[in-house]
Structures are given as C-alpha cells and as structure tokens.
C-alpha cells in the first residue's frame, strides 16, 4: 500500500480495524482482540493437548509444554524464592500471553497486540496492583516504610519520600514502555526496510540488484525480532518476579 504512493507508511500497521463485520464494529471488537483470543486459545491448546498424553518420555508438544512450565517455574522460584510458588500461575499466564503476542505479531498479516501501550500498560497495571496488594496484605503498615529507608536522616524525608513514591509509581510505566517500544520499533523497522525493497525494486533494470540489500537487512531483522520477542516476554516476566520479590520480602 505504501509503494503505490511512493512514501513510507510505517505506522498504519498499528491501526485498529473492527473485525467480524457489523457485530464487531458495534462492540468495538478489533483485530487486536481477535489476536488476543487467538493467543489465549493457542496457549490453552498447547498446555491441554501437550499434557494430555502424560507420557514418561514426552513427545514434541509435551516437551514444549513442559519446557515452558519449567522455564517460568525456575524463573519465579529463582527470583522470588519459595514463597513465589503461589505466584507461578500469574507469572506463567503473563509470560505466555506476552510471548505469544510478540511471536504471533511476526507472522505476515498478523497484528501485534503488544505494540499498543494500552495493552502493555494494562498488563503492567495488573502487576502493579498485585505487588501493592501483596505487600500490603503481607506487611500491613510496614509497607509504607518502603518509601523511607531506615537510617536515612530525618530532615531528608521531604525529599526522599516523594522521590521514592515517584520511583515506585514509575514501575508499571517503565514495564509497559519497554515492551511497547521494543515491539513498535521492531515492526516499524521491518516495514521501512520492506518498503525500501519495493521502492528500489521499481527502479528499472538496476532495481532488483539494489533491492537485494534491504531485503537481506529484513531477513536479518526478522531473526533479530524473534529474539526480541522472546527476550521482551522474558524481561516482562523476570521484572514481575523481581517486583514480587520486593513485595514479599520488603527489603
């Protein structure tokens, strides 16, 4: 669509369009929601069908399900400690949802729902509310001591307390911006170089020769994006675990 006008239109891929005809338009059901449902269905299918065999020697699907389970389990227990076992379902769901969102977005014609700050901030807000509720329910009023470290001089309190509160409130913001910015940057770069391929390819006889350059860049970028898709899901899960550790242990 960008090639006909001769301009680079890298941002239209993030536009939401209603799907499912008039019903979808009436309730605002966009392709983003459709991909979320698809991801949830795929995750459920992976776990359900993967574990249905319950073989001692796992098959391919079962070993994938077991590997993802153990990966997140080790992550949570390693970061939070053994109290973290009860948060494992939460972190696992979060990790798989973000991972599938990132990975599904790399397919042609697919939509990346993690490229919208509304989605990532929604996820980060859930994490933020959870860590605050956990810290409050475990430690009660001592939670507020978090904002003023022991041993600091009292006259510094008017500076330290607002700074600590702002720092604490910046957690969901940084969590969501990191994921959203990574996904947007990757998809914009892919789109820009893909447009270069089309624009340069139309340059007459020499065109296809030159167009090989951005095409090879794009091939490398796709591989890089697969890495980023996994890494960002991992970072989201591990930061959630670190925040849960802070909430449980209240250093």
């Amino acid at each position: 669509m960008a090639a006909e006008t001769g301009t680079i239109d890298a941002l239209s891929q993030f536009q939401l369009t209603p799907v499912l005809g008039p019903v979808g338009a009436a309730v605002g059901f966009s392709q983003s929601n459709a991909h979320m449902l698809l991801a949830a269905g795929l995750i459920t299918a992976l776990i359900m069908f993967g574990m249905s065999a319950r073989a001692v020697v796992p098959g391919r699907l079962q070993s994938l399900a077991e590997a993802s389970y153990e990966f997140v389990h080790d992550l949570v227990v390693g970061q939070v400690g053994d109290e973290g076992k009860r948060f494992f379902p939460f972190v696992f769901t979060l990790f798989m949802f973000v991972l599938f969102g990132n990975m599904l977005g790399l397919f042609p014609y697919a939509f990346t729902y993690t490229s919208h700050i509304a989605v990532t901030f929604g996820l980060a807000a859930i994490v933020f509310v959870l860590i605050t509720v956990v810290a409050l329910s475990l430690h009660g009023r001592k939670f507020f001591g978090y904002f003023f470290p022991e041993g600091a001089p009292l006259w510094l309190a008017p500076i330290i307390i607002p700074v600590e509160i702002v720092s604490y409130l910046s957690r969901p913001v940084s969590l969501s911006i990191r994921l959203f910015a990574n996904m947007v940057a990757g998809h914009v770069m892919l789109k820009v170089f893909a447009t270069f391929v089309v624009l340069l390819g139309g340059l007459g006889a020499i065109g296809p020769l030159v167009a090989v350059l951005p095409l090879s860049v794009n091939i490398a970028l796709v591989g890089f994006e697969v890495l980023v898709a996994f890494l960002q899901a991992y970072v989201f899960a591990i930061l959630t675990s670190i925040y849960l550790h802070d909430a449980v242990h209240l250093h």
């Binding site: 080790d74 992550l75 390693g78 970061q79 702002v166 720092s167 409130l169 910046s170 913001v173 940084s174 911006i177 990191r178 910015a181 890494l231 991992y234 970072v235 591990i238 930061l239 675990s241």
Partner: peptide, 26 residues
C-alpha cells in the same frame, strides 16, 4: 539466586533510558 536479566550493551542502555523517561513521565 539464579536467573538474572540479560546484560548486553544496547539492552542496558535502553533500559536505563526507559527508567529515566518513565520516572519523568510519572
């Protein structure tokens, strides 16, 4: 404790930038 954050040069720089920007936003 196992499972640390991956530490590459770009990753660290990007994370530092995100931390500053998000604190400023808040």
């Amino acid at each position: 404790r196992k499972g640390a954050l991956p530490a590459s040069g770009w990753g660290i720089g990007f994370r530092a930038g995100v931390e500053v920007v998000s604190a400023l936003i808040v």
